[in-house]
Design a protein around this nucleic acid. Structure first.
Length: 429
DNA sequence: TCTGGGGTCCTAGGACCC
DNA sequence: TCTGGGGTCCTAGGACCC
């Protein structure tokens, strides 16, 4: 019996979710766009084969996409979030522990001899396919870094059928692969580190595995040192089974049309601060710090302006009235009227699970209004998100800068009105 | 005309204290 | 007014990830 780590992830997750409810998309090239239909964030294999890159601005590739008959979808995060929860539930049945690493990836603890581990990986893959309907790849290895690598191998080699357990492979073959895969394909090694490593003659995974650990520690950091140790089979990245406590809550969006006036920006901040407060309440957290930001486009030639300010809150709060008032007031101070802002954001940090002591001084009055947040939450839960809000947050009409989602699919699994209808005909005799 | 959003961790350097 | 060493805490920025 050997303890191993499996890394399971869904192939082309957003595209795969769309395909579950729209089988006509299977076999067709499909792309999914970011918020505001700005960039390509997910591609089916067919779209990758046609040369669509991730992060490509949609307006630049739109012609090409349409001329090749590719299907396009806006991001549907309600759907993806719900599908993710279903995948994670299935995976939890197979692990002695589970760490949900991202919306489409999870580490789980597995046990068995080399032969059993390979079979287990195959069973995991078919269980997710049967229960949820999306394809996954499974990599099994002694450390997280190697499990990521094994997953990478499973994905790139069709004959492996989506699974790769390093223990059941010939070490010579593993070494061969590692000497061909660039070091930047490794988890934790990005472009910057890759360039510096390459200057030292380290360009493949095998090169890094053979590098001197203390030298790496000296020239880089403890992060890369851990990567080298993990490549050599020593686990040193801990797994947090229970979700690590959240450090910050961010609500940040690009606008579909630029915002140039203080009044419009006040509206943005009012709405974003209320979204942030709602997240605090649903997570049971109170914030000590409020940061507000805005920014002009990096691609435009007009005045560049990236105002940002962090306010210390009088005491830990989740009060939407206080947060809205502070966010709007501070934004009025720091924005440049006339600059063309294309994004804005609210960040809540210094999070803690308790409201803490009541504040003294000028903010006492605001703190007394805290229960308003509960009322807002209750009304929204019953009558929908757009039923009520503070000030501009209660707008019945969509503001001119609000998000564009021209190609969205329905909320198949999270809204009664969008539940798919299935029709069956009796067999003909 | 149109270029995403949300996170984590580590390190260096400054402020401050004894 | 000047000087030394050691320590903590906070913040900004870098790097990375999906």
């Amino acid at each position: 019996m050997t303890e191993r780590i499996a890394l399971v992830d869904v192939n082309n997750f957003y595209v795969s979710c769309e395909r579950v409810f729209d089988p006509k998309l299977i076999g067709r090239p499909v792309v999914v766009l970011s918020n505001n239909d700005g960039c390509v964030v997910a591609r089916s294999q067919e779209a990758k084969d046609l040369g669509i890159t991730t992060g490509a601005p949609f307006f630049k590739v739109k012609q090409f996409i349409q001329s090749h008959g590719m299907a396009v979808r806006s991001s549907n995060y309600e759907l993806y979030g719900d599908m993710s929860a279903r995948v994670m539930e299935v995976l939890s049945r197979f692990g002695t522990w589970q760490e949900v690493y991202s919306i489409d990836e999870s580490f789980i603890g597995v046990q068995g001899n080399p032969g059993q581990l390979g079979e287990l990986a195959t069973r995991i893959r078919s269980a997710v396919g049967r229960s949820v309907g999306v394809p996954v790849c499974v990599g099994v290895a002694p450390t997280k870094t190697l499990a990521k690598f094994a997953n990478h191998v499973a994905k790139r080699n069709a004959h492996l059928d989506g699974v790769c357990s390093l223990d059941s492979m010939d070490p010579q073959v593993v070494g061969d692969i590692q000497s061909r895969v660039p070091v930047t394909d490794l988890w934790g090694v990005g472009a910057r580190t890759g360039a510096r490593l390459s200057g030292m003659g380290i360009s493949t995974i095998a090169d890094l595995k053979a590098a001197d650990v203390t030298d790496i520690r000296k020239k880089f950091s403890v992060v890369l040192q851990r990567t080298v140790l993990e490549l050599n089979g020593t686990p040193c990245i801990p797994h947090n089974e229970e979700r690590a406590d959240k450090q910050q809550i961010m609500y940040s969006r690009s606008f579909s049309n630029p915002v140039t006036t203080i009044e419009d920006m006040a509206e943005v901040m009012s709405i974003y601060a209320q979204r942030g407060a709602a997240r605090l309440m649903s997570d049971g957290l109170w914030a000590m710090l409020l940061t507000i930001t805005a920014g002009t486009s990096r691609f435009a030639s007009g005045e560049a302006s990236f105002p940002s300010i962090t306010l210390k809150l009088p005491s830990p709060t989740q009060d939407p009235i206080l947060l809205t008032r502070l966010a709007v007031g501070a934004m009025r101070e720091i924005m440049h009227p006339g600059a063309s802002y294309v994004r804005g954001g609210v960040v809540l940090s210094g999070l803690q699970p308790e409201p803490g002591q009541a504040a003294f001084g000028i903010f006492e009055e605001e703190m007394a209004e805290t229960h308003v947040g509960d009322v807002l939450g209750a009304v929204k839960a019953k009558f929908g998100n757009k039923s009520i809000g503070l000030g501009s947050g209660g707008l019945a009409v969509e503001p001119g800068w609000s998000m564009k989602r021209d190609y969205s699919s329905p909320k198949f699994t999270t809204d009664w009105a969008d539940i798919p209808v299935v029709k069956a005909e009796p067999p003909r005799v």
